[in-house]
Design a protein around this nucleic acid. Structure first.
Lengths: 138, 138
DNA sequence: AGATTTACATAGGTTCCCTATGTAATGTGG
DNA sequence: CCACATTACATAGGGAACCTATGTAAATCT
């Protein structure tokens, strides 16, 4: 199997995993946003859109929803009145932890059902996905 | 890092990969369907919906579109007039190969941009995702 | 035969995401 | 310092991919 074939399979199976998890657990778009804020700290709308690889209007809408839910705060940037600063709230961090635990438990079940998959294998899979996505944006 | 934490990360990064690829390449829902037909041979609507983990109406609509595009054929099942038999056409198989090649090339580029990721790592990641998804449906 | 189940179609609605475009604030060249 | 481009967002309008609820016709069961 070539790298190209493997890479193709990676996309297909990644898509199926996401669909399978979403069916049972709900994986709202907002989760990705608060995950990014947790990882990078406070950010503006456009920065978030770039990191999440979505359009700026999409991120605007997502942030509005998160503000309504109380999971982030949105303030004017004192250094640049055009932009905003989106900050993860404590409630948002709690939500993030809850979602992560739910997802983790569910997928960990699936992993546990396959004894031939070791923790090392799992760690490698995560490293591959994360590596692929780091900076390889264009 | 525990298995649960790793599993949680796996979901997050899988979701980001799918989004990243979809942004550049288009990963239409129909691709999954013809991929399933390629893997399992001719199937009915409900069987396809179960395999794709989507609802039956969703699969009905997806198949209708694929028929219009000429990538599958839909015939009445001679053994059971209620059901249909969806079959991958030659054009559909060509399309599948084209899509796979595009996805593979794009992700292979991303992989190539990270020399610390070996082919073995990639193969492990694919094996983990496929393993997780095999039969672990419920 | 009547009732249930199965396979699919249709209706209506939600979520997520896009492009196009407007607006206000910030830099920039003459 | 004033017109102009650029940047950061917001708004408008629309499309794709899902869902649940429900209807219909064929197969199966009692």
């Amino acid at each position: 199997m070539t790298d190209t074939e493997l890479a193709s399979d990676l996309v297909v199976y990644a898509a199926r995993l996401v669909r399978a998890v979403r069916r049972e657990l709900e994986l709202p778009a907002g989760t990705r946003v608060i995950s990014l804020l947790d990882q990078y700290g406070p950010l503006g709308i456009t920065q978030l859109a770039d990191l999440d690889r979505c359009s700026q209007p999409t991120m605007s809408a997502a942030v509005s929803q998160l503000v309504e839910q109380g999971w982030v705060t949105k303030e004017r940037n004192p250094d640049d009145a055009r932009s905003s600063v989106i900050t993860l709230s404590d409630a948002g961090r709690d939500e993030l932890n809850r979602v992560r635990r739910r997802h983790g438990e569910r997928v960990a079940e699936l992993v546990a059902a396959h004894p031939d998959l070791t923790t090392d294998d799992l760690a490698t899979a995560v490293a591959v996905l994360r590596g692929i996505l780091s900076e390889g944006s264009s």
